[in-house]
Simulated assay, not measured.
Amino acid sequence: MKARVKGFGLVEILLALVLGLVMSLALMQVFVSAKSTYLSQTSSAAMQEDARFILSKIVREISLAGMFGCLSNVTDASNGGSFSEAFDEPVRWDANRRSLTLATAAVEGGGAWHTWVVHTDCVSAATAYSSGKAPGVAAGELALPIRRQVYQFNKARGELALNGQPLISHVRAFSVLFGVAHSRDQQSVARYVADADSALIRSVRLTLTLFDPDARMPEQTFSVVAAVRNRLG
């Protein structure tokens, strides 16, 4: 009698190959899905971190805008002794140029970069001098470093720049609205408008929309409201 040959038949081998292929495809799908989720979450976290950094920086500078000392009127010696627009309107939004201009206190200290130095006696005079051209501080005067910060959105390049230097890329939109009061004596915000009398501004609403250049996730829009602490008018 012939000995019985033990082993797998053709049908069994084909079935095993099919099952192995199905399991391999399932594992590959799980891996691809996990990688896609990881990339999406990483992109989302990066956008949130960028937005948090940019908006918190602008909010901090808005809160210090108009902090020129004890007097509301500043004579700009760097502008021929006239009243400069920067000091008259320390928070300005140019819708045509898509730029936000701030005249804000340089709180890092006397060694920090600044545009002007305001000398004031808090009684009768406040004069702004260009950085590096200010005279010595007289007795009874304070010297306050002030800087001009210009944030400009370039839609064509999808970029938000600070003083002409790229600050953040992949920006879809950047807008500013002013929370204004009904009158100079009121402190509460009555409505938000695109243009306003500086004396009526009580807060600033910033909106920033970012996108993922690799389209791994939808655009994200971030919005924050910054209170204006200092007198603007």
Rank of each mutant, 00 (worst) to 15 (best):
P135V: 09
L102G: 04
S169V: 15
S131P: 02
A105R: 14
D121C: 07
R205C: 04
D94C: 01
L15C: 14
D197L: 09
F83L: 12
G233F: 13
C122S: 05
A139W: 10
A138F: 07
N96A: 14
D88T: 14
F211H: 06
R98V: 10
G9K: 01
A3F: 13
F31M: 11
D195N: 11
R157S: 11
A134I: 12
T104V: 08
Q29M: 11
A51H: 05
A26M: 12
S183A: 12
R97D: 09
G9H: 07
L71E: 05
T120C: 04
G109I: 14
L162Y: 02
V137F: 01
V18P: 00
D214P: 00
P90A: 05
R148V: 12
Q149L: 15
F178V: 15
V189A: 02
L167N: 07
I62T: 10
V180S: 02
F83Q: 08
M67C: 13
A26Q: 09
G136H: 07
G179Y: 10
I13A: 08
Q48T: 10
L17W: 13
D121A: 07
K57Q: 11
G9S: 14
S130C: 00
G179I: 13
E141D: 08
S72I: 15
L14Q: 12
F83C: 00
R147S: 11
N163R: 04
T209V: 14
V22K: 00
R92K: 05
S124M: 03
Q165V: 15
